[in-house]
Design a protein around this nucleic acid. Structure first.
Length: 545
RNA sequence: GUUCCGGUAGCUCAGUAGGAUAGAGCAACAGCCUCCUAAGCUGUAGGUCAAGGGUUCGAAUCCCUUCCGGAACGCCA
């Protein structure tokens, strides 16, 4: 049931009646004031410019030319030239059958056209624990992946493991320092080492397993493997707990092992995108919109970070992905133009890479900003957050904000578990419905879920609740195509509110058998949609609270 | 100095095709449990959309300038 399409058809019919053959895009909007109808269009005002006639007059004649349609109670013209449509909300009752028929697939669409999309997110270095910024990335990336999947994209979630570069050497040094400290040496961690407590744990384990062996022989390779494996395993475990599952864990080191990096250099050289200067190899990224050219091979022969990253993105393209999406922290925004430029040099289109930037999370505790410090290793980890707050509130909270908004996380508030936390509102709605359905079952009421006639659903509250259900598929499409996961949490709030309002205004299980059954069937549909929507942001739909 | 992001109700945030009287949640205030879960419902109050200028029938939205906050500007990653 696509009411906006019906309206479009009505308008087009009227335009043709008026002997017009071209017209501007027809916009259908939902007025924020319901006294201006359920839907409205500004087409008459847009035409006013072209036709040089008063918008009101144009609107009048369009309405006069529209064929009768029972879905609308009333179509009116309003100043300064809007056409307002008042829907006969009884047609919304059809959505119940659609939901129950589709079940978990209600809201699914094909606008993604099975396009192969690679979403890379988190990609934290295996040099410590995941902190709160990664948590935002994980929640946002996974929600986007779920939403796009639902909208018909063929999505792969990918994690790029930086196990090949300098930071791994730094990790080995840090483990070495902690190892020596564990064995009683007085040695201080360098400024740029990894100061997190997890490194100390690793070092103690190494001492337990190998004693002081590596004081006498080089432990570098042992430290590297042990460190990366354990830290990566911990990252993966934390993410799984957070209900984020990656399809691909891509190792940077394999880019060197498979000579992909060398091949990328050769390709860039052969295609004339490079030049040598001052002993370094430069890439002409400024030809593709970057503000200046960038070094990819330093004068000492080593590579900059950009080079393996180009090879990595080229690899993604070679695996057949039509759209690459990177979700990055906003501190990488300066890096985006050079990466986009480079991707075009290795065969990607201008829009092959799309970057979603996440702004920083500001953490408050006791009303004061909590500063993260790399030096002290003091940071709020994802694990701490999960243990103290729980997965549902964290995921919901991150999913509520648009990706590029600066956001604040008040730990005291998150810990409070009160109604200040909006996730409870939604979960409570779902649990309430579950409770009603349980009560009905106890009374041996078995609603016929194949019922398609709902004559008793007449009240404003019930019809309004159905109107929200009708909106769900469009909401998913919008969230997917515009990459706006927070549209889903907004929808969840709207659905929960419509339900709670309905619940407060009428009793579901009553003496009237027919009305009871119709309401129960409707609630099955509401529950299904609520569960579907919560699923898209990775939040559990609770049966009881 | 340059670039990017932000500035909207007391607080946290929506407003992503330029539309009508700028919204939600929380907090505040006033009500509502004999009744399927009160983590709920109903109502009230709350705004110079940072400031100024411009574009037009119409601007929180587009353009310019300024102010404030965050971030990035490396042959680091």
């Amino acid at each position: 049931m696509q009411i906006d399409m019906m309206i479009k058809t009505l308008i087009e019919t009227a335009l043709k009646q008026a002997q017009l053959d071209t017209w501007p895009d027809i916009e259908i909007e939902v007025p924020n004031d319901t006294t201006n109808g359920d839907y409205a269009t500004n087409i008459a005002m847009k035409l006013a410019r072209v036709l040089r006639r008063a918008p009101l007059a144009i609107a009048e004649s369009l309405v006069a030319n529209m064929p009768d349609n029972p879905a609308f109670k009333h179509i009116e013209v309003a100043r300064p030239g809007f056409i307002n449509f008042y829907v006969d909300k009884r047609i919304y009752r059809d959505v119940i059958g659609e939901v129950l028929q589709a079940g978990a697939d209600f809201g699914a669409s094909t606008i993604g056209a099975d396009r192969r999309v690679n979403i890379e997110f988190v990609s934290a270095n295996p040099t410590g624990s995941l902190h709160i910024g990664h948590a935002r990335g994980a929640a946002a990336g996974d929600a986007l992946a779920r939403i796009m999947q639902k909208a018909g994209f063929n999505v792969t979630r990918e994690y790029y493991v930086n196990d090949g570069g300098n930071q791994i050497n730094q990790l080995v040094r840090s483990i070495d320092v902690r190892y020596r400290q564990a064995l009683g040496e007085t040695i201080t961690m360098p400024e740029d080492g990894y100061h997190g407590p997890e490194i100390i744990v690793l070092a103690k384990q190494l001492v337990a397993d190998h004693g002081d062996r590596f004081l006498h022989e080089d432990g570098g390779e042992q430290f590297r493997q042990f460190g990366v494996n354990h830290l990566l395993a911990a990252l993966r475990a934390d993410l799984e707990t957070f209900r984020v599952h990656f399809d691909v864990w891509f190792s940077e080191a394999t880019l060197y092992e498979n000579k992909t990096v060398e091949a990328t250099i050769e390709q860039l050289k052969a295609s004339g995108h490079t030049y040598e200067e001052e002993g370094a190899l430069w890439l002409k990224t400024s030809h593709y919109g970057d503000e200046k050219d960038r070094v990819i091979v330093k004068s000492d022969g080593s590579y900059t970070y950009l080079l393996p990253d180009i090879a990595y993105h080229a690899d993604k393209l070679s695996r057949g992905f039509e759209q690459l999406i990177d979700i990055l922290g906003s501190d990488h925004h300066g890096y985006v133009p050079r990466l986009k430029a480079a991707i075009q040099m290795v065969g990607g289109g201008e829009n092959a890479l799309e970057v979603e930037l996440l702004q920083m999370v500001k953490v408050l505790q006791n009303g004061e900003e909590l500063k993260m410090s790399k030096r002290s290793g003091k940071a709020i980890t994802l694990r701490d957050l999960i243990d103290e707050v729980g997965v549902d509130p964290i995921r919901y909270f991150f999913a509520m904000r648009s990706l590029n908004t600066h956001m604040e996380l008040d730990l005291d508030l998150a810990l409070k578990e009160s109604n200040e936390n909006p996730v409870f509102y939604a979960q409570y709605a779902h649990a309430r419905i579950a409770s009603i359905l349980r009560n009905a079952a106890e009374k041996s009421l078995k609603p016929n879920l194949n019922r398609r006639q709902f004559e008793t659903l007449q009240s404003d509250k019930a019809l309004e609740l159905l109107a929200v259900l009708v909106d769900y598929p469009l909401t998913v499409e919008l969230a997917a195509s515009k990459r706006l996961p927070h549209k889903i949490t907004q929808y969840i709030q709207r659905l929960a509110q419509a339900f709670h309002t309905f619940y407060a205004s009428e009793t579901v299980i009553s003496e009237d058998a027919e009305a009871t059954e119709e309401r129960l069937v409707m609630l099955h549909a509401v529950k299904t949609v609520m569960q579907n929507a919560l699923e898209l942001v990775g939040v559990e739909a609770k049966e009881r609270m």
